[in-house]
Design a protein around this nucleic acid. Structure first.
Lengths: 233, 233
DNA sequence: ACCTGAACACCGTTCAAGT
DNA sequence: ACCTGAACACCGTTCAAGT
């Protein structure tokens, strides 16, 4: 499984001794490279959604033959892995550390995470089923250390992290997928209304219409953090 | 868009005046019917996962030609919608209502929901992107009315419901997807260990190994409910 | 070292046709 | 009313070959 240099440590060919300008653009960079492939994949996903990412279409966008990708990337799965982690990049200088209020830190951390995923609406639903890349791990580490420094007992640390992770993932997936068109939502609520004797509470509260996603996210997050605060020593 | 009877109200052909036993099994039921298609789809999904569900394979399992499905079902999307809602069936007699403790009720409701989705590991990730069928709406209604009866203010009701929904979805998706093989998890944790200077906290807490999913789920749920209890009037 | 086209075994869905 | 096969426009990936 290691004949090809498509392994994890390969950063793509170096631009130094570029050979003889092969038919593509003439900026020193070779026409295909892992970073370029990943960046283009993210663009394609942003534009066309998960189902829009096709090896052939991706190659097309890169001005390459369909099969050329496989020298760099081994798999479509791998493309997803790399695109996801690349979409979750975060400011290298974690200025979040050591604020006065650890709750503030956690909230800011997770809200940034959420905003980042909402900017790439395909990312949230992909996250739980992918290998954890360095950016994802970096975010988890930042969260862990913040909570740990805040005094969360070691025994409760993992439960706290996973609870927050699960909540952020769930909220973001829901929002990215339900927040489609207003028409869809009205249609859904109207189906409920048509059966108001079966779903009286939902009908009365207009659950499927009203959706202050940002507010709801923040409220639930506060609940969780309140609970976690209890576990500090 | 309405020539075919594949619309929402069509429950499949009635078995009453069955005609002349067409080449299939000789139990009164017609060889193809919406309920049978949906049930088989659920089986197929359980056995082969989301990617395993193929119109052709589904038809195969039903002993029918590949295209026969389209008379009953209009779409592959629709198959997913129906299979999902069918997997989320719940006891028609909601004995949950009117216990002494509303918190107990909510917990039982959501734990049953989660167990139900874990029994069909493909369901959780499908849920957020699908139309809400009667079973899903029924569960939402039950949750809503329980919270409402518990005294949650109308202004906070929807936020409470969505918070719980998001949390359950997130937790279940994470669990269904991360809980794969032990090998995977050890490999993941070892990658972290190899970079222990970058992820010291995660390494120390063994986040990627230890995963008491059930316990974590319950703890986070309690946090949320605690927070919601605050909002009662 | 890097890229390519032809080919294989699949997809979902349309359509015109069978009973 | 219900089912079908052929056909179309796609997929991901292998392989043997090009430079």
């Amino acid at each position: 499984m290691a004949e090809k240099p498509s392994g994890t440590e390969n950063k793509g060919p170096r631009r130094a001794r570029a050979p003889l300008q092969s038919a593509q653009e003439r900026n020193g960079e070779p026409p295909l490279s892992l970073p370029r492939i990943v960046a283009t994949a993210v663009d394609l996903l942003d534009a066309e959604g998960v189902d829009g990412l096709t090896m052939r279409r991706l190659a097309d966008r890169l001005g390459a033959g369909a099969m050329s990708l496989y020298w760099h990337v081994e798999n479509k799965e791998k493309v997803f892995d790399l695109a996801l982690d690349s979409a979750l990049q975060y400011p290298a200088s974690p200025q979040v550390a050591d604020t006065l209020d650890w709750r503030e830190d956690v909230v800011r951390l997770l809200e940034d995470w959420r905003v980042c995923m909402l900017r790439h609406p395909w990312s949230a639903s992909l996250l739980p089923r992918r290998a954890l890349g360095p950016n994802i791990l970096g975010r988890l580490e930042l969260l862990s250390s913040t909570l740990s420094r805040a005094g969360v007992a070691d025994a409760d640390l993992n439960a706290a992290i996973w609870s927050l992770w699960n909540y952020v993932i769930g909220a973001t997936i829901t929002r990215a997928n339900f927040d489609r068109t207003d028409d869809d939502r009205t249609a859904a609520q109207q189906r409920v209304t048509g059966l108001s004797e079966r779903y009286p509470t939902i009908e009365r509260s207009r659950l499927l219409l009203d959706s202050d996603w940002d507010g709801t996210f923040r409220k639930g997050l506060d609940f969780l953090i309140d609970g976690i605060a209890t576990k500090r020593e």
